[in-house]
């Protein structure tokens, strides 16, 4: 069941206006889509954070008495990820197919881990197209059968019914590899040689001396 969020039209726009809104316990946002004009809005920060916390993707937005379904497209956070700074909401109808980013969770311990293999997740979020009403919270991929040097691609992910993959199907999702042990010693030897970096645009001593000698001859 989609949560109902109350919102009001916003007249204060720009950085200063947004700061003033945030000081009152609200957050600025925008609603767009379906060929209509974008509408700057003000939302309750607490209600919005609760909706995000509960994993809601589709909300009912009560904008000055007019209720419409919206999809949370983007949420901006502050530097430390504590406070919501701004939200982007897109108008959607409930029978519409939308493109969303979904988190991929690897479940289980790979069989190759017993042989010293390390599971490395290369891709953690994928783009899929699905119905607004059936956006998955996350996609679980079992990796228990993976051996050393095995690789899973995005095309191997079991998608929910009705969903199609938009990301590159040949992209790597995860690998199980054995970490080489000699890297550190090699790095240390290389590093000792490079005592000072090269200065861009500065002539080397030999070149400078040659140039001076040529100048004296002339």
């Amino acid at each position: 069941m989609a949560a109902v969020l109350k919102a009001t039209r916003r007249t204060q726009i720009g950085t200063r206006g947004a700061k003033k809104i945030r000081q009152t316990g609200s957050i600025p946002g925008i609603v767009y889509g379906h060929g209509q004009e974008p509408v700057p809005i003000t939302l309750s920060e607490h209600e919005m954070e609760l909706a995000i916390l509960h994993g809601e993707r589709v909300l009912e937005l009560d904008l000055d008495g007019q209720v419409e379904n919206v999809l949370i497209k983007e949420v901006q956070y502050d530097t430390f990820g504590h406070e919501v700074l701004h939200v982007d909401l897109a108008r959607v109808s409930l029978d519409e197919r939308v493109e969303v980013t979904v988190h991929v969770v690897l479940r289980g311990t790979p069989a190759g881990a017993a042989e010293g293999g390390v599971l490395n997740q290369v891709t953690s979020d994928i783009e899929i197209e699905c119905l607004v009403t059936s956006i998955p919270e996350e996609i679980v991929v079992p990796v228990g059968a993976m051996k050393v040097d095995d690789m899973l691609h995005l095309k191997d992910i079991p998608l929910p019914e009705g969903a199609t993959l938009l990301s590159d199907p040949d992209a790597v999702l995860c690998t199980v590899t054995v970490v080489a042990e000699e890297e550190v010693a090699a790095e240390a030897v290389e590093g000792e040689e490079a005592a000072e970096p090269e200065v861009i645009g500065e002539k080397k001593e030999e070149e400078a001396e040659e140039g001076a000698e040529e100048g004296e001859k002339k």
């Binding site: 290389e190 970096p197 861009i200």
Partner: peptide
């Protein structure tokens, strides 16, 4: 050995 730029 510690990190440092190659060219500056």
């Amino acid at each position: 050995m510690a990190m440092m730029p190659k060219r500056v």
